[in-house]
Design a protein around this nucleic acid. Sequence first.
DNA 1: TAAATATCAGACAAATAGGTCTTTTATTCC
DNA 2: GGAATAAAAGACCTATTTGTCTGATATTTA
Lengths: 156, 156
Amino acid sequence: MILSKACEYGIRVVLLLATQDGPGVYHPVRTLADRCGSPHYFLSKICGQLARDGILNSHKGPNGGVALARSLTDVTLMHVVESIDGRDRFDTCVLGLEPCSSSMPCPVHDEWVDIKTAMLAMLENRNLQDLADDLATGKTSLKLILTGRDEETGSD
Amino acid sequence: MILSKACEYGIRVVLLLATQDGPGVYHPVRTLADRCGSPHYFLSKICGQLARDGILNSHKGPNGGVALARSLTDVTLMHVVESIDGRDRFDTCVLGLEPCSSSMPCPVHDEWVDIKTAMLAMLENRNLQDLADDLATGKTSLKLILTGRDEETGSD
DNA sequence: TAAATATCAGACAAATAGGTCTTTTATTCC
DNA sequence: GGAATAAAAGACCTATTTGTCTGATATTTA
């Protein structure tokens, strides 16, 4: 809603990698897709984009896959959003008015400015390390309702 | 982005009516569409929905059109949003996780709760009267960049 | 080198959102 | 009643997003 589906999946996969083994450890997109409830081929494209933007590295062949390209402290969710959705996702007027700005504000302009600020803060105030720490301590969770299959046994 | 295009247009038309003559005065959707930069037929459907939900009244024939159905103080933008987009637009997790809640929060759950609260406040803290007052005094504006035509002379 | 694994590139399909048009119906004015 | 006006209903089209598939390429292992 606020983010595209593609971006949701992108964030999920990055968080997943951050909680698993950190940068440099490769996982096949196939496996990650299962774990984060994203369509395999769709996630594959998303990872391609993240790789092009230097957030992931990718490697072909056995033991290949994708891995975080940078240190956990060097990546924020905003980096992912910028890569997938683009930053201008947050530059629009609530009412879609073109000239809306502080000098010609729409009826909800001021409130919206504050909300956008809070959204940016949500996405860039904490890096992957912080977020992974919260996940590790159980303070937060990435659990989702998996429809169809439940869990991998590691056999694939 | 946060609201659908349909909802944007719906809000615009309601604000337009609020600043023009208040409840009970009918304007053809055609004219309103020109003024609020919305496709005529599209806005027509939107107004139909708003009428079904008791926000607008509509009347066929000459001197017909749509008009606000209730007093300006009885309508907020949230009423429009609920009518067009539905309230559950604000009930989703940023990451699209199904079980996300305060007891199983996603990594940005808490921040998102605050942001949603602010968005609801933006949409329901002030009624059409308040918003129309700000527009009347020039404190805010509904101006938009009209592509193609500039203004009606009343001839069509 | 052969077989297996996995990404890459890009075509393709399905679903949804956004937008247009035509026909019908109700209303007003003459 | 007849002409004009304007909404109502619903079919239809277009663009974007989401999702799937195929063939090619690179890499590893044996």
